[in-house]
Design a protein around this nucleic acid. Structure first.
Lengths: 336, 336
DNA sequence: TTGAAAGCGCTACCAA
DNA sequence: TTGGTAGCGCTTTCAA
């Protein structure tokens, strides 16, 4: 900037004004400065600028998600990026892998880099440690899972309602033995989805069978193994409600391997790529992932801009997408 | 930091030394400073630090990809994040959507934020504009597509070889009319994959039929439409080579809709989630996406550290994964 | 409309 | 081992 000022024969302050589009600079100086900037390929240092500027904004936000490579997280990321663009803001995404320790590290990094805000799908179960950050100017918005031990904005799915609908849908096709396959219990969404499942069973007057509830399935392989176990029970389930997309895929893998994919009904929570290319096509309860992301980042920017309105929690509706796998009738004789 | 120094009763400089783990501080002062830091919840400002520090590193890198939500980009992102972690570096990811204008904007943002380096899957076709940046201390590594109008490090797949293998594989199963379905010609990988396809046809003594080459298919829907057109030709292809995962999915969608999925062979470039859950399971030429990302970020860090060795281009092997769709024999009577 | 000086939070350099 | 001082690149404040 000094160099530009020297070349244009003006003060450093005038260059600053031109760079920031101040209206109070004469056309001639503006022209001279622009030319000098171009000639020297000058790029203002945003970090230095934010250090001194009144608002102190870095125009960077942090997005802490489960895994940037998983479709749910990646879609969320994209939705957030699109809105951040319109605010000239960069998005730094970090994968937590359900590791609370990693969450702490990344939050600390975000704070040390003075990011303007944080959007988080938390891995930890107590977020009290964020209290100080939030009250010293780093707003935090929770996504997918509510904050615990802390009052903060959150954008969630109606997990219970979605799971209820999935289970009731299977029951409506005559299923009485509907298995629940879920991820780790420590994840709030899993509990909520289980509650919806349980409530639907109760409302339909169906028995709750402990042995057809499988959890702590953290990847497709675990889900595949669990499904195998379920189908080998003396009295196997005739339908599966899988509470997450990797679990759905693992379960389907096993059903195919056992030749049962046209005989055992499946409804999955979360849509996934190619779900409508499988045979049978996979009926799912889809979350509005893009909508969730959009809402969350809007809320974050609103907080960043100083909005001090009361904390706010939004639950987005899910949508049942009927494709075939969830409409198979109960099938006898699965016992081998 | 000033506050911490005051509370601990030491100079600001001593606090700095403690924060940076300088060995030359007495245990007692170190202890006092640590306690004061904790009490005030002090977080050093990394931006300010980098502004003054000798190396000037911000510990941030930019990753410019097609779309953070697409599986190829997302996997790349994850590989890069993992290595960046070990360097205490955050990754800013931005989606270019194949838009050269967007590429310019994001490169500019990366430069203005003084990111330590850039990894790019370019959307533009002339990267000369990056020359200045690269020689003023922002290393750039290209991924998936080579630089043009610029000499720079690149990590690529052996696209030609992979496409050759896919096409030859189909030919080995007796196919003579193998269609090529590709994305936009302006993308270098598409051209390279077409070259492999063409070369394989030539080597097998197969005719090249212009009418069964479809390109500029930028999404699954376009691929689906193109496939429909191909299959309605008087003399339709008996096999498809789809040069990208969205194209593969679109083509399969149409084959299923036309009831041809067990009669028309398919080999796709790029593996995709659930490819092994389809019926038939999808034979693909898989890229080592994780390996590409790892190599690229390692190279970038090496350049950031000052490595001035000659520019370097790496081509990673692809892998044919035989699953079923690529081993269907030619089928007559497709004409309707 | 323009510029000089101070200072954002931190580290480099040199002195004690 | 510790601290003072200057200054990174920029914006603010205030004076011209």
């Amino acid at each position: 900037m000094r160099d530009v000022a020297a070349l244009a024969g003006v003060s450093i302050k005038t260059v600053s004004r031109v760079v920031n589009g101040s209206p109070e600079v004469s056309a001639e100086l503006r022209q001279r400065v622009s030319q000098a900037s171009a000639q020297l390929e000058f790029h203002p240092n945003l970090a230095a600028s934010s250090l001194r500027r009144r608002d102190g904004k870095t125009r960077q936000v942090a997005l802490l998600i489960e895994d940037v490579a998983n479709p749910f997280s990646a879609t969320l990321h994209r939705a957030i990026e699109d809105v951040a663009n319109t605010h000239d803001t960069l998005v730094f995404a970090g994968s937590l892998d359900e590791d609370p320790q990693r969450e702490l590290e990344l939050v600390r990094a975000a704070v040390q880099h003075r990011m303007d805000g944080i959007i988080i799908v938390p891995a930890s179960s107590d977020h009290g440690y964020l209290h100080r950050e939030m009250h010293t100017g780093t707003p935090v918005v929770f996504v997918d899972r509510p904050p615990r031990g802390l009052v903060a904005d959150a954008v969630l799915s109606d997990n219970t309602g979605g799971a209820y609908r999935a289970t009731a849908h299977l029951a409506a096709y005559g299923h009485r033995d509907i298995a629940f396959l879920g991820d780790d219990w420590s994840i709030r969404t899993v509990v909520e989805r289980y509650e919806g499942y349980e409530r639907a069973l109760a409302d339909q007057g169906l028995p709750r069978r402990e042995e057809i509830v499988a959890c702590d399935l953290s990847d497709a392989a675990a889900a595949a193994r669990a499904t195998q176990g379920l189908m080998r029970l003396p009295n196997p389930p005739t339908a599966l409600f899988t509470s997450q997309n990797l679990v759905t895929m693992g379960a389907i893998e096993t059903l195919q391997a056992m030749g049962l994919h046209h005989r055992v009904a499946v409804v999955g929570f979360d849509d996934f790529p190619a779900a409508d290319l499988l045979d049978p096509r996979v009926t799912v309860v889809a979350q509005d992932v893009f909508g969730i992301g959009t809402l969350a980042i809007r809320r974050l920017f609103s907080r960043i801009a100083g909005d001090a309105s009361p904390v706010w929690e939004e639950r987005l509706e899910t949508r049942l997408i009927v494709r075939g796998s969830g409409e198979l009738p109960p099938s006898d004789g699965l016992i081998r």
